[in-house]
C-alpha cells in the first residue's frame, strides 16, 4: 500500500514533466526555473538542517564502544572500534562513512554439521545489506560526480578520467557506464529487500519507498536518454552550462525525457533536506560514533550542566542517623552532644 502510493507519486511526477515540458511547451520553466529553485532549496535546506542539529549541544560523551578500551599498557586497545583520541576517532568515522563498517559487522551464527554429522557452530556474515548499500551509494556518487562534466567547460582532467574509466567496459554504444549498473543493481536490491524481508517490510514507510522509487526513476530516465533515445549531449550541456553561468538560452533539440529526468532530480533536491536522506549529513554528527571514549581521561564540558544539583549531603545524612551511628561506633563529624 505504502509502496504503491510511493510509486504513484513518482509516476505522477513523470507525467507532470512530460505534459509540462512536452505538450504545454513550458520548457524554459522546466529547464531553468524549477532546477534552479530546487538547487537553492536543497542548499539552504541542507545547511539549515545541519545548523539545527549543530545548535543542539552534545551534553555527554556517549560513544558506543565496539572493542577493547584503552587501559593498562599491556592490554592492546582496539583503536578503531573504541577510540580514545581524536585521530583514532577520525579513523573510526572514515571507516564508518567510507566503508559502512557497522553494517559490515552484521554477522549471524548458524549451526552446521561436520563430516560425522556432529553439530558445529559456524559463523557466516550477513553482509547482503552492506553489499547493496555499498553498490548503491558508490554507484550514485560516481554518477553524480560524472555529471559535473556537463556543468564545466573545459572538463577537468580528473573528471574526464573518471568518465573514461567508468565506461572502460566498452560494450554497447554509447559505452555502458559501470556506475549505472552499480546504481541500478544496488537500488533494485534495496527495494527488493524492502518487499521480501518481512521485518523490513513491516517497518517501511512511504518515507522509505518514495526516495527509492524516485531515485530509480531518475536512473531509468537517465539510462533511457543515454542508451535508447540517445539524446544530443551537447544541447543538454548548453542547458546545464546555462544553469551554471546564469546564461539562459531557450533549449533547442532536447528530448522530453531530459525534462522528465531533470524534473525528478529537482524533486529529489527539494525532498532531500526534509527527509531521512539527510543521514548523509547526519552520520558525521552522530554522538555515538564521532566522539572518543575518553571522559575518564580528560574533562568534557556539558554546556547546560546545572551546578545547583547537589547530592543529598552527608550532613543531612548524619543528622538523620546520628544516634544509631553513634551507638554502632561509626565515626561521626558531630557527636550527639555537639549536635544537640
Amino acid at each position: 500500500m505504502k509502496a504503491i502510493f510511493s510509486l504513484l507519486m513518482v509516476l505522477a511526477l513523470v507525467v507532470i514533466a512530460t505534459v509540462g515540458a512536452g505538450a504545454a511547451k513550458m520548457q524554459t520553466i522546466f529547464a531553468y526555473c524549477i532546477p534552479g529553485t530546487a538547487f537553492v532549496i536543497f542548499l539552504v535546506g541542507f545547511v539549515c538542517k545541519i545548523i539545527s542539529w549543530a545548535k543542539s549541544p552534545v551534553p555527554f560523551r556517549i560513544p558506543t564502544t565496539g572493542g577493547q578500551q584503552q587501559s593498562l599498557d599491556w592490554i592492546p586497545q582496539n583503536k578503531w572500534d573504541n577510540p580514545s583520541t581524536g585521530p583514532q576517532t577520525f579513523m573510526r568515522m572514515v571507516l564508518e562513512v567510507l566503508t559502512f563498517r557497522s553494517l559490515f559487522r552484521n554477522t549471524k551464527v548458524v549451526l552446521k554439521h561436520d563430516d560425522g554429522k556432529n553439530p558445529i557452530v559456524a559463523y557466516v556474515s550477513a553482509k547482503w545489506l552492506w553489499l547493496f548499500a555499498i553498490l548503491f551509494h558508490y554507484g550514485f556518487l560516481i554518477v553524480a560526480v560524472r555529471h559535473l562534466r556537463l556543468f564545466l567547460q573545459p572538463v577537468p582532467a580528473p573528471l574526464a578520467f573518471l568518465d573514461w574509466s567508468d565506461s572502460v567496459l566498452q560494450i554497447l554504444t554509447p559505452a555502458i557506464y559501470i556506475s549505472d549498473l552499480l546504481l541500478l543493481t544496488g537500488l533494485t536490491m534495496l527495494l527488493a529487500r524492502r518487499f521480501i524481508d518481512a521485518k523490513v517490510r513491516y517497518i517501511s514507510l512511504v518515507n522509505d519507498y518514495f526516495p527509492l522509487f524516485l531515485i530509480l526513476a531518475i536512473a531509468l530516465s537517465g539510462v533511457y536518454m543515454r542508451y535508447i533515445v540517445k539524446v544530443d549531449v551537447m544541447s543538454i550541456k548548453d542547458v546545464a552550462m546555462g544553469l551554471a553561468t546564469f546564461n539562459f538560452k531557450v533549449p533547442a533539440g532536447v528530448d522530453v525525457s531530459f525534462f522528465v529526468h531533470i524534473f525528478l532530480v529537482s524533486t529529489l533536491l527539494v525532498y532531500f533536506p526534509f527527509s531521512k536522506l539527510m543521514h548523509m549529513g547526519g552520520v558525521f554528527l552522530s554522538p555515538t560514533r564521532n566522539m572518543p571514549n575518553d571522559t575518564r581521561m580528560v574533562h568534557y564540558e556539558n554546556v547546560w550542566n546545572n551546578p545547583a544539583i547537589k547530592p543529598h549531603s552527608y550532613e543531612a545524612y548524619e543528622d538523620d542517623f546520628r544516634e544509631p551511628m553513634f551507638e554502632a561506633g561509626l565515626p561521626l563529624d558531630k557527636s550527639p552532644e555537639d549536635a544537640a
Binding site: K108, V109, V110, L111, V121, Y202
Partner: peptide, 20 residues
Amino acid sequence: VETQAVWRNNRDQFSNPVGH
C-alpha cells in the same frame, strides 16, 4: 504474522533461538 515471517526465514540457533 510479522513474527512468523521473521522466525520462518532465519534458522540460526543463536540469532533466532525460537524458530530454531
